[in-house]
Design a protein around this nucleic acid. Structure first.
Lengths: 114, 114
DNA sequence: TACAAAATAGTAAGTACTTGCAGTAAATAT
DNA sequence: ATATTTACTGCAAGTACTTACTATTTTGTA
């Protein structure tokens, strides 16, 4: 999302710009109750390419929704966790999730993985 | 969003796919408490091109978040309103909005229009 | 000494999303 | 007869977003 991130039209617009994007919601959601290493996230978010995962995590980090902790070991170890702001977003995602669940039931849609 | 809309990885993924996109959130939000004509929406959503607005409204219609009522008059008159599913999404957007508002205050960000 | 492991970085190529611009329809006002 | 109004549609062009693939770092291990 290099997109006019500067041009915010309204508060709702601002909100969606922080959380929008192909993987952000899922990443925040899996981090809701556990700190995860890069590789663990990779396995959790089925379908992400490593490049995309890293890139998305960087954006979340810049926006201060996710924190990154590097352990100086070899092989490398990096842990990702929600920040306070990130945690505050969880109830919101939870609500979307409830809505989505109902929709999927009504429309008889099933999920590919998980 | 022609994007693998078919490939849903999890419930959260499904939810974000319905509401994601550059203008969907804003459109749903302005429709929260009033039925609007195409032209009114156009003025409300600062920055949308007519093409994009139409396209986005079509997607929302297909997803049954928004209803479209055509009056057989000349010049044409078309009204857009939230469906039941669309309305159920409002509390969610409201929550994102509260979060976003806090964030913007903390980060001292201001809005370009509105 | 070559090899594996974990977490990336860089660049080119591909695909999806948006914009811009021209054009349509049909009744009414001029 | 022509202009005006409203809500679009179609297509080409432009921009943003993703993927694919190659490469890097460092230390313990075979």
């Amino acid at each position: 999302m290099k997109n006019n991130k500067e041009v915010v039209h309204c508060i709702v617009d601002y909100g969606f710009k922080r959380v929008g994007g192909k993987y952000k919601g899922r990443i925040l959601w899996v981090l809701r109750d556990s700190v995860l290493r890069y590789g663990e996230l990779k396995r959790a978010i089925v379908g992400v390419t490593p490049k995309m995962l890293t890139q998305t995590l960087r954006e979340l980090e810049v926006d201060e929704l996710v924190s990154r902790k590097v352990y100086l070991e070899v092989p490398p170890k990096v842990e990702y966790a929600l920040t306070k702001s990130g945690q505050e977003l969880i109830p919101f995602i939870e609500q979307l999730r409830i809505w989505a669940k109902n929709q999927m039931e009504q429309k008889n849609i099933t999920v590919n993985s998980l």
